[in-house]
Design a protein around this nucleic acid. Structure first.
Length: 256
DNA sequence: ATGGCCTGCAACGCAGGA
């Protein structure tokens, strides 16, 4: 079972790349973020022709999440429970034996911004839900753009980034709470070194110089972490013409 | 070289991202 997450930064612009990537990698599940596409405009038929079911939760201009899967998605949820929010950032679906929860965590903008407060509140509400999810679903996958670099190995220049949004201590503490609930960062099951990133700034030749952050993650419940055969970041699409600023991240799980 | 880009919407600049 190959599971992937990709912040595509506009599905309208990136559809050809997503189709190309699906054709190459053939993941069983692809969770996308920042589709920036209303549900009525979602390219269901293009994905169907590629062999994928699709569920989506979008809005104009901003945010938007979607899950593609080879098997039929069931029990779809499109919001954090008990959290009123017009922003489309959450999509959950059961696919085969797995509960998939696709997240586009708020960016936060800066520590002084109202958007940072919103991010921390959002993460606190998510944590409450994750508590329920871990009890209800032994095969839980929590994945997406977390907009958090969990530790300094995940930052190209920790001194430059110290204390800034995406690396600040309250955000990292929120990430550790998911781990305290038993979820495992699949990438770190297989790689302990630094210098592995999932996002690079469009400016300053960030990708060429590997000035990036690892902020896209696939978290696995203990039962799935035991069966995680590999985890990786596919840098290739970041090198394509007109790329997303994020790379797809992958985890392979050997189901019985 | 200490700043550099991209997207959508609208309207010919802005907000937002990270």
């Amino acid at each position: 079972m190959k599971i992937a997450s990709w912040n595509v930064n506009s599905l309208r612009v990136r559809l050809p790349q997503v189709l190309r990537w699906l054709d190459t990698q053939r993941p069983d599940v692809l969770a996308m973020q920042e589709t920036k596409t209303e549900d009525k405009d979602f390219p269901v038929e293009e994905f169907s022709a590629a062999g994928y079911n699709a569920v989506c939760s979008g809005q104009p201009t901003y945010n938007g999440v979607a899950i593609l899967s080879r098997d039929e998605p069931e029990n779809v949820l499109t919001a954090l429970p008990d959290f009123t929010d017009p922003q489309r950032r959450v999509l959950a679906a059961s696919i085969g034996a797995l509960r998939i929860v696709d997240l586009y965590v708020p960016n936060g903008q800066s520590l002084e911004s109202d958007k940072y407060r919103y991010k921390l509140d959002w993460l606190a509400q998510l944590d409450l839900w994750v508590g329920e999810l871990t009890r209800q679903h032994p095969n839980l996958v929590l994945l997406g753009d977390f907009n958090i670099a969990p530790d300094d190995r995940d930052v190209h220049d920790p001194k430059v980034w110290a204390g800034q949004v995406l690396v600040s201590e309250p955000e990292r503490a929120a990430f550790r709470k998911f781990e305290a609930r038993g979820l495992k960062d699949s990438f770190r099951l297989h790689e302990q070194g630094g210098g592995h990133f999932s996002w690079w700034d469009y400016r300053a030749a960030g990708f060429r110089r590997n000035l990036g952050l690892r902020i896209d993650h696939i978290l696995l419940s203990p039962a799935l972490a035991e069966r995680c055969a590999s985890a990786s970041i596919d840098r290739e699409p970041r090198g394509w013409e007109r790329p997303s600023d994020h790379a797809p991240v992958l985890a392979e799980i050997t189901l019985p």
